[in-house]
C-alpha cells in the first residue's frame, strides 16, 4: 500500500462528488427555476458549498418540476 494506491482510490470519490454537483447545477440551469421560497442563487450556493449534501438537498427540496 503506497500513496499512489490512495490517490487512485480517491478518484471515484472525487468523481461522485463533483459529478453530483455538476449534475445539480446543470439541472438548475436547464429549468431556470426552483421551488419556492429560496431563490436560484441560494440553491447554487447550497449545491457548491454543501459537498455531497448540497445536491441531495436540491433534488429533495429545491427541484421545481415535481409539481404541476
Amino acid at each position: 500500500m503506497d500513496d499512489s494506491t490512495l490517490i487512485l482510490a480517491l478518484i471515484p470519490l472525487f468523481l461522485i462528488q463533483v459529478g453530483l454537483q455538476i449534475y445539480a447545477l446543470v439541472d438548475i440551469y436547464r429549468r431556470k427555476t426552483v421551488r419556492e421560497p429560496l431563490p436560484i442563487w441560494a440553491w447554487v450556493i447550497i449545491v457548491l458549498a454543501g459537498s455531497m449534501l448540497g445536491p441531495i438537498a436540491y433534488f429533495a427540496l429545491g427541484r421545481s418540476e415535481d409539481v404541476a
Binding site: I16, G19, Y23
Partner: peptide, 25 residues
Amino acid sequence: RTRKLIVVLAVLVGFGLMSPILAKI
C-alpha cells in the same frame, strides 16, 4: 424521474468509499 434515486445512491456510495480513505489519511 425526479433524480432522487440516483443522487441518494451516489451519496451513500460516496460515503462508503470515503470512510476507509479518511481512516487511512
